[in-house]
Amino acid sequence: MENTFSNHILHFDDSRIQSPEATPLAEHYAMVNTAVSIVTLLIIISVALVAIFQPIWPMPDEGRTIAVYIASGVTTFFLLLIGYGYFAEKAKGYCVREQDITLFKGLIFRKVITQPICRIQHIEVKRGPIDRKVNLAKLHVYSAGDIAQTFEIPGLDLTLANSIRNEILAHKDMQHHG
């Protein structure tokens, strides 16, 4: 069998990627994600504060102090979590090569997940309401080895996500198996 196999990195913009290193996700993705988490946290805190200090069914003073302690403890915990999440999202990256697509993730546990294109069953570009506001998209890739975890690259520019999807769909092995 003649060996014509190649697996170079594909470039979707006039990109700088020359090594098999991860391309970071969209610049504003981690920021947006963190902002969403902070807003959610703020809403929950304000609801809690209103519940604690509302005058209609006043809490006993002692209970109020304990509730404030608990609320601030929980807030601190989630703030730390959000901070960690920011850096974790920042650390995510992807790489599309001719034959496969790779997701890099993890701060403490660094993971490199590679999905050969010939094993992809179908592929979806997903956008939630916030993704649509900030022009981002998630790329979901499904294969048969999937039940527990789907392979998802978040925080891609919409046009980039679409061109990756099209590139993968155009792959000869995808057409065979589709």
């Binding site: 660094r110 993971k111 590679t114 094993r119 294969s143």
Partner: peptide, 14 residues
Amino acid sequence: KIQRITYSQSLFMR
């Protein structure tokens, strides 16, 4: 028959 492969490393492991 492999569908996908994951390569993972914690800080200690690195």
